[in-house]
Design a protein around this nucleic acid. Structure first.
Lengths: 145, 145
DNA sequence: ATGGATGCAAACTGTTTGCACTACT
DNA sequence: AGTAGTGCAAACAGTTTGCATCCAT
């Protein structure tokens, strides 16, 4: 798909600019991880990203994966989620409408976007005299029987 | 405070009923942990609860702590939070108004309650034909300078 | 008495760290 | 050339599990 290809390039540039700005080196591993991450549909965890890349004969280490994921989080190219208790999930966040999640008891994950959450945010900023830069919202439920 | 004492007893009864209903045994350890948990103001993690009780010369194991915390979660006497990445925090939830949290970059935690979150919930239930039984909502920000 | 619950320690799992080597700047 | 970044393996931290013992039923 042409659109995705376009995004891939844009995303690569964003990462490049970020690395340059922060004085980080532009290593092939970092770009490989970025492009791999942007190939994945939906959510992923580090371990599956690792085996995924190993299977494709990339030479990556977990250390580099964790390191790079931190960079991608920092420049907002991915978001972190905690669906379960002890494992982090990630998903790409570039040019995808910001959204929240409903987690059903069968493991299904529904995405939604409700503008009222931004209104709540605004209210809180005013009441407590703070600046909110992000939020995490999950609903837990099940399909109606 | 008399009010707290009253709650302690009520809470103990709720736990008793729960244990009976589920066919779990009413062990002194379970009650000890419950009362210890309800003594704590604010949030706590398992490890500090453990050292806390050890210091008071309780004979408890981490295994029992984890086991009992699961029971307390199940009967809704406590709630679980994930403020950081890899560590669970808990807080008592009996007769305290259900609330959500704002986490500031200095570590400060503000509690708030906004009715609009329940409206969002209702909307989602209708749209997706699901039944939502809980949610978790966190805002992240900093004090205005 | 019997098997669910406990304490202890070992095992597990996701993540971080130390170190020698590599390669971007 | 110098040093940030890498791969690997060992270390770590929170949690879970196996097992012998204990005790609530």
């Amino acid at each position: 798909m042409e659109i995705d290809k376009g995004n891939q390039i844009k995303v690569r540039d964003i990462f490049s600019d970020y690395l340059a700005e922060k004085g980080h080196r532009k290593t092939p591993e970092r770009y490989a991880i970025l492009s791999e991450v942007y190939t994945i549909q939906g959510h992923f965890d580090i371990e599956s990203l690792y085996t995924n890349m190993k299977n494709k004969n990339y030479r990556v280490s977990r250390a580099t994966l964790y390191n790079t994921i931190d960079l991608l989080l920092d420049c907002k190219l991915i978001r972190r989620h905690q669906f379960g208790q002890n494992i982090s999930f990630f998903e790409k966040s570039f040019e995808f409408k910001q959204h929240d999640h409903i987690i059903l008891d069968n493991g299904e994950v529904i995405e939604f976007c409700d503008p009222r959450i931004q209104k709540i945010r605004k209210t809180l900023e005013d009441i407590f005299n703070i600046e909110i830069n992000e939020h995490s919202l999950y609903f837990y439920g099940k399909r109606k029987t």
